[in-house]
Amino acid sequence: MLRLPGFRVASPTTIAEAVAALAEPGARPIAGGTDLLPNLKHRLGAPTVLVQLSRLPLRDVEVRAGALCIGAGAVLADLAEHPLVRAHAPSLARAAGLVAGPTLRNLGTLGGNLHLDTRCRYVNQTPLWREALGGCLKSHGDRCHVVPGGQTCVAALSSDCAPALVALDATLTLHGPAGARTVALADYYCADGTAHTGRAAGELATEIRVPLAPGPRRETYVKWTVRKSIDFPLISIAMRFDLADDAVAAPIVAARVVVGALASTPKLVRKLDALRGQRLDDPATADAIAAQVGAQCKPLPNLPYDADYRRAVLPVHVRRGIAALVAAGENHG
């Protein structure tokens, strides 16, 4: 039995009311609660008031002004099946459908998924367990058990949707005391596992926008875990290829590969410019991408599985993801 600490709740019905409620020191937003409540049961955080977002009008999914616009309160189970999401952002539909298990996807929201706290084998534990180790930078301690001597927490970004949305050049709109602002999701995360989002005090995310593809595109999200359900990602790769025409073997116009479940930010893989003009069904293309991912991305011993193994298989999953896109041929999306 895990009891929650004491707090009050606010149930606003408009964004303005929610922003006002969030202005109170110690206030935290709660959407589905599937990340926040387990963490509070483990005494990670001590909010004074939880501002429930579930009554806000933030669930719409629509195409508007050249973008797929998704309310931050949209529920993952709905996104995974939504015809517009499947048509315009199939890798996001896939990522949303791979989060946790089916009952958690009925509660979890996209806004909550993008703000999912970073995870680490040394911190997602009971207080007794953590204290036995003297705590760490993320919980009442002064050291890191993952990087001995390290002064920055490298707990893992474990959101399945964040890498997919960064690969799709998504933006995030937030409302706060100073009004609304929109940021590129690629610039939203920072390399500090104790505070890894650019969310300012009192802000709440309201909308995610994915620009519609300018032309033919193939995209996918690859997740590997030990169990087939419930588990957070141990390998997490989002890939997007813009192509010269709708054949899967058409020349690549642009490629974007983003890897999650490393440290606290989604990692944009660099040096992929040489892929322009190459073809997805050419094995040399998959080899080149896998080599860059292997060279630039180093899984850390922050998650509950062997880091050396995860490093070794990361490029393998890149190749498999591309092979699946090629095998699907023209039946994508």
Binding site: V9, I30, G33, S54, T103, N106
Partner: peptide, 13 residues
Amino acid sequence: GKAVPSCLVLGSA
């Protein structure tokens, strides 16, 4: 009508 884990839903919600 949708299946959810009741340990992660606030009573007030």
